[in-house]
Design a protein around this nucleic acid. Structure first.
Length: 570
RNA sequence: CGGGGCGUAGCGCAGUCUGGUAGCGCACCUGGUUUGGGACCAGGUGGUCGUGAGUUCGAAUCCCACCGCCCCGACCA
């Protein structure tokens, strides 16, 4: 591509709306432009990058035996009513009516449509397993779109759905997809980690997320530095302490604690170790009754773990102040287990505590020296909290560390949730009708672009890998329109590289050298060849990788072979 | 939806408190000089100051309502 024939729209300053480095750089590089909240134009440079990512995803999906098709973005309500998700999906589902007042939605995902396809097309176990995928625009009416295309409402997703006769077959394909995802993210040059994950609103059993490691990520990952254990903090197990509960050492004592409402207040007021304090959180049971959850003062409630406990209302609902007043005769900030008649669930850490400090169920009062079995009943015990740095790893091999990640892929074992609801069945060897086992596998294609930039940039701009770059080589002539020698050398190299199938940009724009160099760096072209009269006199040009600190001189007669080596061409 | 902030030229901003007919840098256009790191000189284009309704002789500025955008919390590729 000749730059003079292409469209550049780089900016020196990023719009104020952009916060993250990736968002700012994508705006400055002219890759994307905002149309409305969470809706973006992919400008020519950004579009090229998007297509590069798609190409790799397609190659690896095809290699893994998945079959591409495409489904409509707009889907009829009937299918969603059949799966039950018309009711449960909530406001993220953009619903609309056609001219006949019939209900439709803009697809946030395609389980229903693909299941509809397969139940109509597939009859026999002989036709299974099958794995279909598409690369398609999805729409989720996010509560808060942000960070540019990182969390957009409309985004490009690769979604695949597999169908099986049995769980074994599902697990096999799940593993094949897992491996394919690893290859994809490796080829894209991303620093990533597969982590065990919660299944969320998609439903099903086993699930892994593929997280690109970045401080700006919205997810927190717990991992073990000495093993390959890694899990989303939503799921990461806080293992039960192995130490037994110490015997009670002090007597129960009620003290006046005016204006002490939080654990921080309590620690400051009493000047005690936060690890002796217990916080009380009241949630609703399925029947609406208050349930008391107890956590050590320095720990956080994990709502996902909490709502999975039998009898607890899901989604997790905190008790209202009125219901708390009725059940405890006190307000939040002064609550505790002593005297409470309802269900009490203690976190595993709390279960082995003695001489606890907690609310007295009397406003402005706390209790010292609270002990289970002596001052109140033994509680139920469950894993209720988020893991923290230093917790023993569930793998048994070390201590957990935390980092942040951007979720770019997610694989699920759906099992028969959709096939049963939608009667997606096949005849087995015995001629018996069975629901198909299903898996689904998503990759956030447009998000990957942002995530890759988040991980690879410097003060000059984006640093793309060859695999993702809008152009692989940037030919920068110094004075293309002034020097015949320069023009000739640049044109020759352009022709040679084009013949080799290299995605090359010849920057023949009539701009000052600084502009050409700066633009090439901003949009992240990995390889650059600078051609000028100065070097040509000595028969050399300059090569510089985007990550090199300076250029190296290359003899013209070796240029092509040097570049071939840099580009990993035969 | 709750809390905080912001809307003035394509982008970044000043002006708003204290009302008086809108400004700076970048970008863009013309001419000239330049040409190995975002040039210089001269001249120019471009804004119903988010929208509506008020107060006032007069509103970017004051009042009210609405809309949009960004950030922090509940969703997820």
């Amino acid at each position: 591509m000749r730059a003079s024939q292409f469209f550049f729209s780089t900016l020196k300053e990023a719009p104020a709306e952009a916060e993250l480095p990736s968002h700012k750089l994508m705006m400055r590089a002219g890759m994307i432009r905002r149309v409305a909240s969470g809706l973006y134009n992919w400008m020519p440079i950004g579009f090229r990058v998007l297509k590069k990512v798609e190409a790799i995803v397609r190659e690896e999906m095809n290699r893994a035996g998945a079959i591409e098709l495409i489904m409509p973005a707009v889907q009829p309500a009937e299918l969603w009513q059949e799966s039950g998700r018309w009711e449960f999906y909530g406001k993220e589902l953009l619903r609309l009516k056609d001219r006949h007042e019939r209900d439709f939605c803009v697809g946030p995902t395609h389980e229903e449509v693909i299941t509809d396809i397969v139940r109509k097309e597939v009859r026999s176990y002989k036709q299974l397993p099958l794995n279909f995928y598409q690369v398609q625009t999805k729409f989720r009416d996010e509560v808060r779109p942000r960070f540019g295309v990182m969390r957009a409402r409309e985004f490009v997703m690769k979604d695949a759905y597999s169908f099986h006769t049995d769980f074994e077959s599902l697990k096999q394909t799940y593993q094949v997809m897992y491996d394919a995802y690893c290859r994809i993210f490796q080829r894209l040059g991303l620093q990533f980690r597969p982590v065990a994950a919660d299944t969320g609103s998609i439903g099903g059993t086993g699930s892994h997320e593929f997280q690109v490691l970045a401080d700006s990520g919205e997810d927190v990952i717990a991992y073990c530095p000495t093993s390959d254990y890694a899990a989303n903090i939503e799921l990461a197990e806080a293992v039960a302490p192995t130490t037994p509960r110490p015997p009670a050492a002090v007597a129960l004592e009620k003290i006046h604690t005016p204006k002490v409402k939080t654990i921080a207040d309590l620690v400051a007021f009493l000047n005690v170790d936060i690890k002796q304090t217990v916080k009380a959180i009241v949630v609703e049971a399925e029947d609406g009754a208050p349930v008391l959850m107890l956590l050590r003062g320095d720990h956080e409630l994990n709502e996902i773990k909490a709502e999975k406990i039998a009898g607890i209302k899901s989604p997790l609902t905190f008790a209202t102040p009125e219901s708390i007043q009725r059940a405890f005769s006190a307000q939040p900030g002064s609550l505790g287990p002593v005297g409470f008649q309802g269900r009490i669930i203690a976190d595993r850490t709390v279960a082995v505590m003695a001489d606890m400090i907690c609310g007295a169920n009397e406003d402005d009062h706390h209790l010292l020296g609270v002990n289970f079995g002596r001052d109140c009943a033994e509680p139920e015990v469950a894993d209720l909290r988020n893991v923290v740095v230093g917790d023993p790893s569930p793998c048994g091999q070390g201590e957990l560390a935390l980092c942040r990640g951007i979720e770019v892929g997610h694989v699920f074992q759906l099992r028969t949730k959709y096939s049963e609801a939608m009667k997606c069945e096949f005849l087995d060897r015995e001629g018996k009708l069975q629901p198909m086992e299903m898996g689904c596998y998503g990759i956030g294609v447009s998000r990957i672009v942002a995530a890759a930039i988040e991980q690879n940039f410097d003060e000059r701009g984006i640093i793309f890998t060859d695999a993702m770059a809008p152009f692989t080589v940037d030919i920068v002539p110094m004075g293309y329109r002034r020097s015949e020698a320069v023009q000739q050398a640049a044109d020759q190299l352009y022709a040679d590289l084009t013949a080799l199938g290299v995605d090359v940009l010849l920057d023949d724009r009539d701009e000052r050298p600084g502009v050409l160099l700066a633009d090439g760096e901003l949009i992240g072209i990995p390889h650059r060849v600078v051609i000028g009269d100065r070097g040509l006199k000595e028969g050399v040009v300059e090569y510089q990788h985007r990550q090199d600190s300076e250029a190296t001189k290359v003899n013209l007669d070796q240029l092509l072979s040097v570049l071939k080596a840099k580009l990993n061409l035969a």
